[in-house]
Amino acid sequence: MSAGLLTVSPSPHIHTDLTVPQIMRGVIIAMIPALLFSVYNFGLGAVYVTLLAILFCVVIEYAIARYLLKRPASIYDGSAIITGMLLAFNVPSNLPWHIILIGSAVAIGIGKMSFGGLGNNPFNPALVGRVFLLLSFPVEMTSWPKAGATWSLDAVTSATPLGILKDGLRAGDTVPELMNQMPSYTDFFFGLQGGSLGEMSAFAILLGLIYMLYRKIITWHIPLSMLATILLMTGIFWLIDPTRFANPLFHLLTGGIMLGAVFMATDYVTSPFTHRGMLVFGVGIGVLTVVIRLFGSYPEGVSFAILIMNAFVPLINSYAKQPRYGSKSQRHKAYQEKLEKEVKATP
């Protein structure tokens, strides 16, 4: 006889290994290639900003959980680290520390903990922080250091390709003229462009995507539907007037689309439950992004698009349901009719 009492619990008695901390660790690993690329591009600034953001987020979450909500700290699940990393990925690599602190406080405090912590926030916390900073510190948030320029902290600033495009078009230039001022598509793909810390390299982000798909952390539905929508919409506009609208590949590789599609929109908490819902969500983000980029006053619209679609998630959840077993069957209809007949026949 074994020592001690036996445990009794309801079935199932086995459980998957993919638990919340495991998933969070997986996401962090998936973000590392993008981080390495930005270190290569921007040097120490990227490391400095990322570490600061992570530190602030974790400390703020710990403090709020411990001293404000008076409950055990929830930092061990790793979600605060991800929020910090994503926030860092969304800001220029030369952002002063006090702005990072404000961003982290807004992201964790308002974006996440005010709703009750992990799992209860309707909006992506990192994006809440990012948009808050963008609106509060427009100058600091839009002066990006030049890519691949230097390893020092005070680098020369440059505009992003999207910024150049928007300003150029406003000034009356045509797209082909503006394209000549920009790096090549291979540079875009590998990340040699101006912009926020983590959004540079489509290649590095795709590596992360492949890793997350392989680990079954996310499914293909949101990234693919979002990217396909953007490709399709920008393609249509490009075909209509190539002098006013940039080609789809340019749109796909610049700005935060890749980062948004892979790491931001796929956030479990703020995306729909079902595959159907995810497709709707992805398409919605795609449409909004393109509309903001092409017709809005901001050069970039991914953050806004994702936040707007976040608000629609509860609605999507209540309509986009999974097909239920037995609901589609032809026999089922016949069965229902028969039942109805029987009901009618009985007096």
Binding site: L5, L6, T7, V8, S9, P10
Partner: peptide, 22 residues
């Protein structure tokens, strides 16, 4: 005395649907 360790969700109602008790 306890005869086993209950390890399901901590709710009498759920334990009662499972078995006669710990």
């Amino acid at each position: 005395k306890k005869t086993n360790i209950y390890d399901g969700e901590s709710s009498c109602k759920i334990a009662a649907t499972l078995y006669s008790g710990d």
